[in-house]
Design a protein around this nucleic acid. Structure first.
Length: 429
RNA sequence: GUGGACGUAGCUCAGCUGGUAGAGUCCCGGGUUGUGAUCCCGGUUGUCGUGGGUUCGAGUCCCAUCGUCCACCCCA
């Protein structure tokens, strides 16, 4: 045997057994987004490296060490997208869709980050992204959160809770950041190694430290929400009132800072305790400065991303995923003449009953094996076509899921007989 | 990138202190020359992750490497 080729680390196949959960999530999301007036947009998986550097931030982990970057044959530095927002904003700019216009968009597809794989964290992973551009909020902020809350309800996902925070304007955030650095620098001796490193790059993340020894120090640090500019404070206040109004429970988490540089004001995250260390299922926020930063006309925006693999895991845990529907009729063919006419009969039945699922036994097999396959397929009834039946111009129908006798039907009226058999003796399916 | 656990049949796993591999399941055939799921009988399946080393002898011990899982970091 030749050496088999290994899959790429952290890049998974989604097998038929799991595809039901994926399709449920994608289907419900698609329906709901349409109901809220969002339109789908499809953008490339590859963009110029510069786009992500400028949008996400040069000194973020994603850009510094997690991007799949390569030089193409033309000598350009390109990158497999690590997130979708930058690409969507680029698309709006490239296609001249701004100029004071508003857009409610969503997209889905694979993202790539070179991280060490772990439960709920893969190198190729999928997101559903929703972006609302041209509206300053907070009304749209609230509606987006309401949309996600409704999505969980529709999917039957319960083990999630909402955290919100406000980062203020970039100016307010910068000022706060300086205060924070001052605070920690004055207590430099008490910082752990991780935090000292963060003090240089992303001091806000020190607040997120999981080290219990740091707790006291962090609790004494200045709090972001107390250093907001007045407008951001009002914005945040309005958001919280509206959430209360809608009975959407939330917790203000002053330590909730997003990893990507472009966020401002509202940020939120739906987290779960059901997925181990990867607790973020959906997160997003407002990015009012991003479009201008990318060279477009200054336009406010807000968006969020859901991790599809993580949602699939949550949905699977609920046990509510429906298996893919089985065939209605499995066609068993016996004898050389019957086998030859099996395809013709199946195609005729598919014409006559376009909404029924027919599975024709393919690849031969003896009678016993064909019946075993019919049973395993989950089909409601077996349709038997043998040389014997063919001779007499009939086919036999045998229910596989209930105790009922086998019957015969003339070939010309087979479709009606199948419908009757599927309906059951007392009209029961 | 750091740390820990684990890689034996397609799948789930057993294999004691080193003596050249086993169960269940799946699949296939038969019992029922045209009737499944149940039952009975039979059959196929392995570079023991890979590469070195120690040894008369390695699935078992050592080293390296790849992979999976979990945690840290970070994040969807």
């Amino acid at each position: 045997m030749t050496q088999e080729i290994q899959p790429v680390r952290g890049m998974n196949d989604v097998l038929p057994a799991e595809i039901g959960a994926w399709q449920t999530i994608e289907g419900v999301a698609r329906e709901l987004l349409a109901a809220y007036g969002y339109q789908e947009i499809r953008i490339p998986v590859v963009e110029r490296t510069e786009l992500f550097k400028r949008a996400i931030g040069e000194y973020t982990d994603v850009v510094e060490k997690e991007m799949y970057t390569f030089v193409d044959l033309g000598g350009d530095s390109l990158t497999l997208r690590p997130e979708a927002t930058a690409g969507v904003m680029r698309a709006l700019i490239s296609n001249g869709m701004l100029r004071g216009q508003r857009h409610k968009l969503w997209c889905t597809g694979p993202m790539f980050r070179h991280e060490k794989p772990q439960k709920g964290r893969y190198r190729q992973f999928h997101q559903i992204n929703v972006e609302a551009v041209g509206m300053p909020g907070p009304d749209v902020d609230v509606e987006l959160i309401a949309l996600t809350a409704r999505l969980w309800r529709r999917l039957g996902i319960e083990r999630v809770r909402l955290e919100v925070n406000s980062l203020g304007t970039p100016e307010a955030r910068r000022a706060y950041r300086e205060r924070l650095v001052e605070y920690f620098q004055a207590r430099h001796e008490r910082l752990d190694d991780d935090s000292r490193r963060r003090l240089e790059g992303n001091p806000l993340r020190i607040l997120d430290s999981k080290n219990p020894d740091m707790r006291e120090l962090i609790d004494g640090a200045p709090v972001l929400t107390e250093h907001l500019d007045p407008e951001s404070r009002d914005h945040f206040q309005a958001l919280r009132c509206a959430l209360d109004e809608l009975d959407i429970p939330f917790r203000v988490n002053p330590r909730l800072v997003r990893g990507l540089d472009y966020y401002s004001r509202t940020v939120f995250e739906w987290i779960t305790d059901a997925l181990g260390a990867q607790d973020a299922v959906c997160s997003g926020g407002r990015y009012d400065g991003l479009i201008a930063q990318l060279g477009g006309e200054a336009t406010p925006g807000i968006g969020f991303a859901m991790g599809v693999e993580r949602l699939v895991a949550l949905l699977t845990q609920t046990g509510r995923v429906q298996p893919s529907p089985a065939a209605d009729v499995y066609i068993v063919v016996s004898g050389s003449r019957a086998m030859a006419s099996g395809v013709t009969l199946a195609e005729r039945l598919r014409n006559e009953l376009p909404n029924r699922r027919f599975e024709l036994n393919l690849g031969g097999g003896n009678f016993k094996a064909q019946f075993r396959r019919a049973d395993r397929s989950g089909a409601a009834i077996a349709l038997i076509l043998g040389d014997d039946e063919l001779e007499r111009g009939v086919a036999s129908l045998k229910p596989l899921r209930r105790e009922a006798g086998q019957s015969e039907s003339p070939l010309p009226t087979l479709a009606a007989a199948i419908e009757a058999a599927l309906a059951g003796p007392a009209g029961q399916p």
